[in-house]
Design a protein around this nucleic acid. Structure first.
Lengths: 232, 232
DNA sequence: CGAGAACTTGAGATAGCTCAACGAAGGTGG
DNA sequence: CCACCTTCGTTGAGCTATCTCAAGTTCTCG
């Protein structure tokens, strides 16, 4: 882990809260570290590069600066379940226990900021606000996982795809358009479907005029209300 | 919520850590509250009684004393996904935010201990060990949810049932036998299957000699190794 | 002992999967 | 800048794991 990628020689170390102020009031790293003075390092990974493996010791906590990351579990025969996609601004790899419980990999070229888990733990041990924030971030991941269990256990393929599109629209739409960083297989592994089923659902939504394409991964939602209706 | 059930008139209020010491070193409530002197109340619910609803304000945190509880989400047409079963000793209903994100109901007659969420929050605000424990409990729920997403998204029916049996065996087997508190429909709603598929899988395991029944809910695992092999 | 709920089993239906072929797009080297 | 090549996405056809619907059986509890 943390083997420097060929294309990204520069490591950029910063004192968070001084050199790198929070982008917004909801910046997760800023909220934790702004008044603690933790050292953050920037790091880059290429598409498909593993950031950490399942059960690997959780030495760092990460925030996506640019790019996109998936967290996933594998079965021994290769079946994969992606538990979450991490987009710019998202924190990932935060663990309360000693090890990562999902693996993480960059799904496109990605830059992250990272801080040592130990330094966060130390800050949480002295500052109750930091401790509260760490709890809140884990609780937020839990909420997402609970919603996703409902999707995986009980929704139809079309409902899953509709939920996915609304989630991505909320998280990464710019000017009414979203540029999906992930391929159809990744979407399928997130939704518990095959890539073909995802493709067919998207084609059907396209033919119904609910969404428009400009390239397979550039999607514009033309009727969010109908999409919400398709979601259960 | 908290309407007293007809069969359980006595409310038993205790000072946790004095009158009700932790049952074991791993007792969750004891670990939080043992040195904080929080007031806990005992309360009982009858089979199928709702303990709290989805999106209801999270006023209390609960621990199962006896019985069993399910936490679930519903879709508008009644499809249900159970996210977790809570068995004696388990804490449930702990939220970092203001509301419960799953509903909870007793699946058999159940007694719980409960403490006010506000008092836990207050304790966490002054005692960093309490804060750490709350985080760890939420992280533990997240771990379970992540494992369950893999099950719901990628495992076959037989693999799901095998996983379920091994989980229940671990959590409630006494003298090699487990007494399941939940019906086949609950198991199906936990595993993302129909009750018929659950029944067929159990029948198949029975006919293969991997488990034995004494009544539909009294199960003894006769070959854990073969069961683990059926789990992916 | 009787009635209702829970469970099992069977048979047919179907949503989503698998396998396969084709087409589009994007990156690379000439 | 073009042409190739690889990867990604789409679509079709048939298959199958699981669901649905239904009937019969067993268990529980009043």
């Amino acid at each position: 882990m943390l083997t420097q990628t060929i294309n990204t020689p520069a490591i950029n170390t910063q004192i968070i809260g001084k050199v790198a102020p929070a982008h917004s009031v909801t910046d997760q790293f800023g909220a934790i570290t702004g008044h603690v003075g933790l050292v953050a390092t920037e790091f880059s990974y290429r598409k498909d590069e593993e950031i950490y493996g399942e059960e690997e010791p959780a030495e760092y906590v990460y925030q996506v600066v640019s790019g996109a990351v998936s967290s996933y579990k594998l079965l021994s025969d290769g079946r994969r379940q992606i538990g979450a996609f991490h987009l710019p601004g998202d924190v990932f790899g935060l663990e309360s226990g000693p090890a990562h419980r999902l693996a993480a990999e960059a799904i496109i070229d990605t830059t992250v900021r990272l801080v040592k888990r130990a330094s966060l733990e130390k800050a949480a041990g002295t500052d109750v606000h930091v401790a509260r924030k760490l709890w809140a971030m884990t609780a937020s991941e839990l909420r997402h996982a609970e919603d996703h269990m409902l999707l995986l256990g009980r929704k139809t393929a079309m409902e899953r795809v509709a939920t996915f599109l609304l989630e991505m629209d909320r998280r990464l739409a710019v000017a009414g358009m979203m540029a999906l960083p992930m391929c159809r297989r990744d979407i399928g592994d997130y939704l518990g479907l095959t890539l073909e089923t995802v493709s067919r659902a998207l084609s059907q939504l396209h033919s119904q005029g609910i969404l428009g394409f400009s390239g397979a991964r550039q999607i514009v939602l033309r009727n969010r209300q109908r999409l919400q209706h398709l979601d259960a």
